[in-house]
């Protein structure tokens, strides 16, 4: 990935059809963050919040 960035650094990025640039590491990180966020939200909302006694209903 670092090599690709170095290649691009000197060229104009106008055409958009430049060489392949696949930041798979970034994609993986975002995927991991996404899964953590979804699991944390499910736990916080459905288990910790709705699972408690005496939910306010009015």
């Amino acid at each position: 990935m670092g090599q690709n960035e170095a290649v691009h650094a000197g060229t104009e990025d106008g055409g958009g059809d430049a060489e392949e640039f696949d930041p798979i590491g970034t994609l993986t990180l975002i995927g991991i963050y996404f899964v953590i966020l979804v699991l944390a939200w499910v736990y916080i909302y459905f288990v910790e919040f709705l699972g408690r006694d005496l939910v306010i209903v009015g």
Binding site: V38, W41, Y45, F46, L50, V55, V57, G58
Partner: peptide, 16 residues
């Protein structure tokens, strides 16, 4: 999904 779950909480279990 965040908006959806909160909406579900208001409509399903009736959280107020």
């Amino acid at each position: 999904a965040l908006i959806g779950t909160v909406t579900y909480g208001a409509v399903g279990p009736g959280v107020a």
